[in-house]
């Protein structure tokens, strides 16, 4: 049995905890992180907009790609440490929501955290990427609240960090 936990910046600890709590003892746990192509692309685009600077070695988009790979690796190591169980780290990059759906194909469970407005329980608590994955994933999905979890009926619960 394969359980995939989608590790995303900001909300991943809840996914790791849920994977630990709900995965059977003999399950293969996969920690999945997708580095979005959008930030490096913004760097490439901004540099392309500077007409006449044609030195490709200065393109910040390339540097952002390298940094994204490093930070994905660090994030997955932190998640592995929190999980405290044997697991497989899986790094992908590209269009985030499509990559998650593709990676989850054939898995037995996908764990993801709500990535929208967490102060108001309801449909907006799923962001566009989360919504897409829930709608398109072909495997069973376990949807969890990121920490801190809102209490039933409560509205306006704000993250203490804000």
């Amino acid at each position: 049995m394969t359980v995939i936990a989608w590790i995303a910046e900001g909300t991943w600890p809840a996914c790791v905890d849920a994977a630990r709590a709900h995965a059977p003892a003999d399950a293969d746990i996969v920690l999945l992180h997708v580095a979005g192509a959008d930030s490096p692309a913004a760097g490439h685009g901004a540099y392309a907009g500077l007409l006449g600077r044609g030195r490709l070695d200065r393109d910040p988009g390339t540097r952002l790609e390298e940094l994204a790979a490093t930070s994905a690796d660090q994030l997955l190591r932190a998640a592995e440490e929190r999980l405290g169980l044997p697991c497989i780290r899986l790094e992908r990059h590209g269009h985030i929501k499509h990559e998650v759906v593709a990676a989850a194909e054939g898995a037995d469970l996908l764990v993801l955290a709500r990535d929208g407005d967490r102060a108001h329980p309801g449909p907006k608590s799923l962001g566009p990427a989360g919504r897409f994955v829930v709608d398109h994933a072909t495997c069973p999905v376990l949807l969890v609240w990121p920490h801190p979890v809102p209490q039933p009926g409560a509205v306006g619960i704000k993250d203490a960090s804000k």
Binding site: G10, S39, A42, G43, A46, L50, R58, R63, L67, A68
Partner: peptide, 28 residues
Amino acid sequence: TVVLLTPVVFATAARLGARPKPHVYACT
């Protein structure tokens, strides 16, 4: 800002564990 600051901002967001997109887009 484009060549020198944007990578620093990305690295800073990543180090904080924050989603880098808003900050990188802000730079550009």
